[in-house]
Amino acid sequence: MARILVTGSTDGIGLETARTLQQRGHDVVFHARSEQRATALTDTQAAHNDATARNDKPSAHNDATARSDKPEVLIGDLADLQQTRELGRTAGAFDVVIHNAGIGGQDERRVTGDGIERTFQVNVLAPYVLTALMPRPQRIIYLTSGLESVGVADLDDLQYERKPWNGMQAYSDSKLHDVALAFAVARLWPEVRSNAVDPGWIRTKLGGPNATDDLPEGAETQVWLAAEDGDALVTGRYFKRREDLRPNPAAHDLHFQDGLLAACAELSGVTLR
């Protein structure tokens, strides 16, 4: 049994990933950005556990799930640097961390209370800060998107401060950054298995109703990398549906990786060592 943290796990792919791992007997810690979302998660989990106990064949595991206490939930708004740093310092140790939390393309450029462009802060800077501050796990998984293939590695303007705003391009860039972060961690921490996953176009609030794939498909590869041995015991790879893919070539560029880490360190005041 592994102790696993899934960020952004109150709904969508994150919730599906956390529930699947929990159902397989792992000690899963959820993450919510606010007390309100944590409370809502507790309610939905109680209903989910009751339904699981009613619909599945009786077993010791199902009985334990139905009787389980409230889910363990860590709270921290990843659009707030102070909260993100506090989460990283207090979350504790895990065998596996799945950086699932993220936001989609924004219709206009918005900055957070820290003065940082919101897409970059939530999708890139937050997983960087958590990675740098938390005890090193055995495995780290960064969720990306197939749109990383059209991401642009622009170290001179990561936050669209000078170039015209394009929400989907900023999102695509952030997903390229996530793959580069996964590869940089794999290179710098050889004892940690660090990989990136494209979950596919999944029908969620983020993916929208026209998406092509269902939730279980969106969680499958993260669950495999988090909890299985054999072919899952790799590092510095980019997967979709357990298939090892070639990412945007910029993700392998050591100059870009190091520049991204340096930019994140300067913005956050936290250095990944």
Rank of each mutant, 00 (worst) to 15 (best):
L176K: 11
G151Y: 07
R193M: 06
L143N: 07
Q138A: 09
A184F: 01
Y171C: 08
V129E: 00
R187Q: 01
R162H: 15
D178K: 05
A153C: 09
V150C: 06
A153D: 09
P127Q: 14
G151K: 12
Y128K: 07
V124T: 15
S149C: 05
P135A: 03
A184Q: 05
V122Q: 10
I140V: 15
L133F: 04
I141H: 02
V185E: 01
Q159H: 06
T144G: 10
E148K: 03
P135E: 05
L188I: 10
N166F: 05
P127W: 05
D157K: 09
V152G: 05
V179T: 00
A170F: 08
L143A: 01
R139D: 00
L158F: 11
R162K: 14
P190N: 10
L130D: 11
A126E: 09
W189H: 13
V185H: 01
E161D: 14
S145A: 03
A184L: 13
P127E: 11
D154F: 11
E161H: 11
W189V: 04
E161R: 11
L133D: 07
A180E: 00
G146Q: 14
V179E: 00
K175I: 02
D173L: 12
Y160M: 14
Q169N: 14
L147Y: 09
S172M: 11
P190Y: 04
W165Y: 14
V122Y: 05
W189C: 06
A186N: 06
M168G: 14
V124M: 02
V129Y: 01
A182P: 11
T131K: 07
L130F: 10
E161P: 07
L181P: 06
L181C: 03
R193G: 01
D173G: 14
K163R: 15
K175W: 01
L155K: 09
Q138W: 01
F183M: 06
V192P: 07
S145G: 06
I141C: 00
S194R: 02
S194D: 00
D178Q: 15
N123C: 05
L143M: 13
E161L: 15
E191R: 13
R162D: 12
M134N: 05
L125S: 08
L181R: 04
